[in-house]
């Protein structure tokens, strides 16, 4: 009826984007109006990125690459017996002290004495347990050939690097709201298993204990420390990262020239090439939204 009423007017009814009322007078069913696709939105969620900012953000990845490289260096030196257990234990203690110091300096709220005591008690229990388990680790892979051990260790470290959470920290400070996601947990576990494999190739239980303690300190708490530094001051974060890069490159250079070149290329790739590549690829981003999209609910579904 509305169509009939509208049909009386001259020169003819305007086309309407409606489905009811049968064929619209004067228009075929395949008529395409000028308003066709006018509600389409392209690239609504695309963020224009700045090259310098992307490079700054990628420093976190390089920083952690350097940390893992340093751990591998310590493993190599220990396996070659150029680093004895006393030096390792001294390194463990200094790392622990410096880590605590950094946490104290960068923490917003003051640590209470009871919390500090709780930390100390936990660390004591942890260290004692590790010392007791050291003989088991030492003989764990006695019947497995060294080639398999090295291959599995390298694979686990690569898995650790790929699944690592570079934007935060898997180990949270007490009272943190968010729980770590699955890939982050897999990453940490891969690194710990790799440490166990390396430790099982060492001659004495004190060696095993020292290496395990060192590895666990780095893999578990280094992300937390670096995260606190970055949160505290970004400039300090950059300074720390570049110092770490320098230390790592120097240590690798002293060990092997070819590895130095490979690692330098890797750092440049992560810091310079990939950010540039990301920005170049962004021009191919093509995203379409419109009224046909499924509506997104604005509240959380709590099942």
């Amino acid at each position: 009826m509305e169509s009939n009423l509208a049909g009386d007017s001259i020169p003819g009814p305007k086309w309407r984007k409606v489905a009811y009322g049968g064929m619209q007078i004067g228009y075929d069913d395949n008529y395409t109006d000028e308003s066709f696709l006018e509600e389409m939105v392209m690239n609504a969620n695309v963020v224009r990125r700045d090259l310098l900012k992307v490079m700054k953000d990628s420093v976190s990845i390089s920083q952690y690459l350097c940390i893992v490289a340093l751990v591998v260096l310590v493993w190599v030196h220990t396996l070659e017996s150029s680093l004895d257990e006393n030096s390792l234990l001294l390194l463990d203690l200094s790392l622990l002290a410096s880590g605590f110091l950094i946490l104290l300096l960068t923490e917003e709220k003051m640590l209470s004495l009871s919390l500090l005591l709780r930390y100390l008690v936990n660390i004591s229990f942890f260290t004692t347990g590790l010392y007791i388990l050291a003989p088991i680790y030492q003989t764990l892979t006695r019947s497995i050939s060294s080639d398999s051990i090295w291959a599995v260790t390298v694979s686990l470290l690569l898995l650790h690097l790929f699944l690592h959470d570079y934007s935060g920290s898997t180990i949270r400070a007490p009272g943190a709201l968010k729980t770590p996601n699955l890939t982050s947990c897999i990453s940490v576990n891969a690194s710990i298993v790799a440490s166990v494999f390396v430790a099982s190739r060492l001659p004495s239980r004190l060696h095993v204990f020292a290496v395990m303690l060192f590895s666990l300190q780095v893999f578990l708490f280094a992300p937390l420390v670096t995260y606190c530094i970055k949160k505290f001051n970004f400039g300090l974060h950059l300074l720390f990262s570049f110092a770490l890069m320098g230390l790592t490159l120097y240590s690798i250079y002293a060990l092997h020239r070819l590895f130095f070149l490979v690692f330098l290329s890797l750092v440049l790739l992560v810091n310079v090439v990939c950010p540039y590549w990301l920005i170049r690829m962004q021009e191919y981003k093509f995203e379409i939204n419109g009224p046909w999209d499924e509506a997104k609910l604005c509240f959380d579904i709590t099942d």
Binding site: A19, D29, N30, T32, L37, M40, G290, W292
Partner: peptide, 25 residues
Amino acid sequence: CVSHTSKENTVLRSGLSPAKVFMIP
């Protein structure tokens, strides 16, 4: 297509010419 929104959606997804697509509800 069964609606004009559906016609817009199908034209975008398939690359058909809009003149080939009829809206019949």
